[in-house]
Design a binder for these strands. Structure first.
Lengths: 120, 120
DNA sequence: CCCAGACATCGATGACTGTCAATATTGACG
DNA sequence: CGTCAATATTGACAGTCATCGATGTCTGGG
């Protein structure tokens, strides 16, 4: 018996610095799904673009309006719109010569609630 | 009267592609203040780090816990923690040899409500 | 059928970023 | 003191990104 007690491992190694966890953190998969959305938003120009589109009636604006609001070249704006579109934050709608972008309130709401839920 | 009516300008120049705006979009200043916060969040590792910290009791965790949760070198984790700290999303607290990071629920809440308010 | 205008794509370039190995700093403890 | 363990800093490198000018692709009108 004495021998076996020597072999017994202390079951909970109380490392001083550790504190318990209250809930499950984000999985790696979830994080890798969400990060690209945030990356698409994490640019001042794209933030303003999205906000500009969302501020229009029906959350919809045509590119010509957007180009004029910035001191950037038209290809640059087009690039940023593409990034937002590919992230699922803007929907594209071509009507004749003009192209309209609409803010996906659904995607934005989901993102907001996710960030919020990280906090409380 | 007929003359004056001829001189009357059409008050709203209806450009075909334009639609009216319902509210003020983000200013450039606001966008440039918010974008760095999102940039700090826009990385899978940092998202998981923040979530991991926030999931601990008192929204606080020590670095040794965080290092172990990733397949990354210790300097890399330290770097990511620094980015989150400088963005104001994590607060630093050194206690003896160990360093604890605490999630700033305030900053996270503000960010979430801002993204959410872009949508509705 | 061709032109003009709206928007997208391409290629280049300078700036920034994630990662690591090596090294420094800091605090506890013998 | 001297050593060890925890964390930060540094320097380097490869990859990504924002921006632009030039060019391509549509579409409607004459």
């Amino acid at each position: 018996m004495s021998k076996s007690s020597v072999l017994t491992l202390t079951p909970v190694e109380t490392v001083a610095c550790c504190s318990p966890m209250n809930r499950e953190p984000l999985t790696q998969d979830a994080a890798e799904r969400i990060a690209p959305l945030l990356k698409a938003l994490a640019d001042p120009v794209r933030l303003r673009l999205l906000s500009l589109v969302a501020s229009h009636q029906d959350s919809e604006a045509c590119v010509c309006n957007l180009n004029d609001a910035f001191d950037l070249s038209q290809p640059t704006i087009s690039h940023h719109l593409k990034v937002l579109h590919e992230a699922g934050l803007l929907e594209r709608d071509k009507r004749g010569v003009w192209v309209y972008y609409r803010a996906s309130t659904e995607a934005l709401g989901a993102l907001a609630s996710l960030i919020g839920s990280t906090a409380p």
